[in-house]
Amino acid sequence: MGLFILRRVGVMILTGLCLTFLVFTLTNLYPNLEKLAKTQGNFRMSDEEVTSFLERGGYLQPMVVKYGEWLGVLPSYRHENADGSIQGRCILPGQAPEEAPEFCGVLQGYWGFSTVFKDEVGSIVATRLGLTGKLMFWVMVLMVPSALILGVLSGMNEGSKTDRTLSTVAITTTATPEYVSGVILIAVFASSAVGLKWFKGTATSAMEDANFENFFLPVLTISLYGMGYIARMTRASMAEVMTAQYIRTARLKGVSFPNIVVKHALRNALIAPFTVIMLQFPWLLNGVVIVETLFNYKGFGWTLVQAASNNDIELLLGVSVVSVFVVLVTQLISDIGYVYLNPRISVS
């Protein structure tokens, strides 16, 4: 088992490096840098000025070297200005060059500085991630149990009326992306035009003080889309298990129907949806971005949009690293969980 996890972690790190390099490359292309120079300096900079600005920041080195520096495995670039002073990524304003560390990358905990929020990327990401974590927690609490119940109920009696009804519900929710369901939910439950006004149409206040009124709609919006998908997976898996020979064996052993479902079918039927739930994470992240934008909840997804649309390179990199990391970790958990759930796979 240890070896298996080790191998998976190895693949994960490799994937992570490839992805971050990709993001790094895409965000550090010349047009982006040019834009960066102009926003940092001024918009009327001539091409030479841009070049010299980039030169000073070390942006004109080869991509791999820059990536190495950002990662913290290569000593960071230092530039000697005309006046003899030395500037560099690791040298904080007012710090003597000699005292500054030679390496300052992600590995050393230095994530860079956000040009939009004028703050350390590390701390921004941490706060925002906390807010999104709160959102995700409630999404999971709402989505997973209801999806599983929905799926099991409709799958255990395939073709029945319950199944037809619940399946239609599930199909409808999978056909409703967050930006549609969010709009509809706000329109029905929060707008003055309909007038129900049960919930609030924004979740900005939920950042400090989340309650049912200001937090339920965003949570529901994210949950709905994923719920239908998981429910359908569970249903398919459950329906397949229920036709398996060993279920017939159990039935002809005299096991009662509720016991067949709970003791014999459930564990086998949950193996497939479990992986699906875990692999839903990249999707949920998608939903989070949409919902946070829609409900103006300033969490991780909102930050991503801000960083991306404002060419905030370091922040975007930080956000990317974290999201890729989250996705990879869930994949790892899904692999390990699969092994635990499925006794047919033995790991020696």
Partner: peptide
Amino acid sequence: LILAFPVILLFYL
């Protein structure tokens, strides 16, 4: 590799 990328991020990039 591509699947591990959040779609939105990819679009933005």
